[in-house]
Design a protein around this nucleic acid. Structure first.
Length: 123
RNA sequence: UGGGUCGGCAAGACGGUCGCGUCGCACGGUCUCGAUCGUGCGCCGAGGAACGUCCGGGCUCCACAGGGCAGGACGGUGGGUAACUCCCACCCGGGGCAACCCGCGAGACAGUGCCACAGAAAGCAGACCGCCCGGUGCGCAAGCGCCGGGUAAGGGUGAAACGGUGGGGUAAGAGCCCACCAGCGACCGCGGUGACGCGGUCGGCUCGGUAAACCUCGUCCGGAGCAAGGUCAGACAGGGAACGAUGGGGCUGCCCGUCCCGUUCCCGGGUAGACCGCUGGAGGGCUGCGGCAACGUAGUCCCGAGAGAGAUGGCCGUCCAGCCGGUGUCGCGAAAGCGCCCGGUGAACAGAACCCGGCGUAUCAGCCGGCCCAUUCG
């Protein structure tokens, strides 16, 4: 699980991250990543629509995503906001699939985030 | 032993690892000095349906929560309850050998409407095939045709056809008359709080169904909802229009009644924070008492979610019950089978958001009990 400091809690933040963040699409999820000021904690948010399933299925998917992000936090990720949107197929995927997909997406962005940050400064 | 029927229980256990939320305590940081943030420890942390949001209440606000109309809901009787469309008991009707189950259970001489198909005819009388009588034509006759009349017993249709059976009666027939039966109405007696049941006497001899068609009768119902509502903090920018008391607005859609009065509407602009409400309640367990029961009551014991992008978890392992498969110079047994052993599986429906009482729906594999029927043995 994620502590309060590592969660995105406002609707405005969600809107900005989804619109302005870099997008990484996978088989079961779509991740949006946006860099923050250096030295800040990474924050995570999740969007699980009713298309994914009933309340129980949605809770399971969200909890798995939280667990993956917690793992990423342990690996030392920081300075980013991440919103993960679950697609309907996420309820059918098993733990390892989701874990590999989300961690992969975070790995790719981490390599490219410095470039994106530089680009933003240049604007 | 098999089949059926009704009800109840439970919604896996243990461990490893990484974590989360409320609250409490300790330590540390910040500051506006009692808040906030961080760390550590401790307690607690989803369901029988938390679900659907279909009923009923509590609670809150709408000034008071008044009367009538309209509208809606309900409908055997008696009881339970805060209340209900719920629950219990009973009655009536229907199904079943039975346990038991089912009924959206008021009213069809207040009125209006409808009754498909078939059938002559579907509601107030009428008569298709028939039956009978009279007249008449043809014919030796039997009989056939036509006209007038009497019938509804017989035929066939239908979910339903103006009672049924037997006898008398008649030209043929008919409750036309009689007996019994069914049904209707009135009265009386007995039992029951009552719905109603049982018995008796008499009457006229017989009347269709549909109210889940309108309708009639009786009972009940004000509206909106925790984003209710309240406290604090904070922000902004005003402008226009209408009516101004024979007016406007609120209280329920309308009327009455009543209350308030610089009120309402439109455009534009600003907030979308914190706290309270927020969980101990029509609460649950056990025992006694009252009651057929639902339930009530007394005593005693126990209460441990309260989030706010939303905690109660992710991953892994071992195992129980059960289920599936296998197999054994294994045990019991005549056999079927049961036990032991090995392998696999080991799970369903589903996630609190103000709180209760119901209803409805979903649910893998199970366990326990009452009753009924059939069969075998004694």
């Amino acid at each position: 699980m994620l502590a309060k400091a590592n969660r995105i809690t406002s609707a405005d933040d969600y809107r900005v991250i989804v619109r302005r963040g870099a997008k990484v699409a996978g088989a079961h999820t779509v991740s949006y990543v946006r860099s923050r000021e250096s030295g800040t904690d990474a924050r995570f948010g999740f969007i699980v629509s009713k298309k994914v399933g009933g309340a129980v299925r949605r809770n399971l998917v969200r909890r798995r995503l939280k667990a993956v992000c917690h793992e990423a936090l342990g690996d030392g990720i920081s300075d980013v906001d991440v919103v993960v949107r679950a697609l309907p197929s996420a309820s059918l995927a098993d733990w390892n699939e989701i874990r590999a997909e989300v961690l992969g997406a975070l790995q790719r962005r981490r390599a490219r985030v410095p470039a994106a940050a530089a680009q933003e400064k240049g604007e």
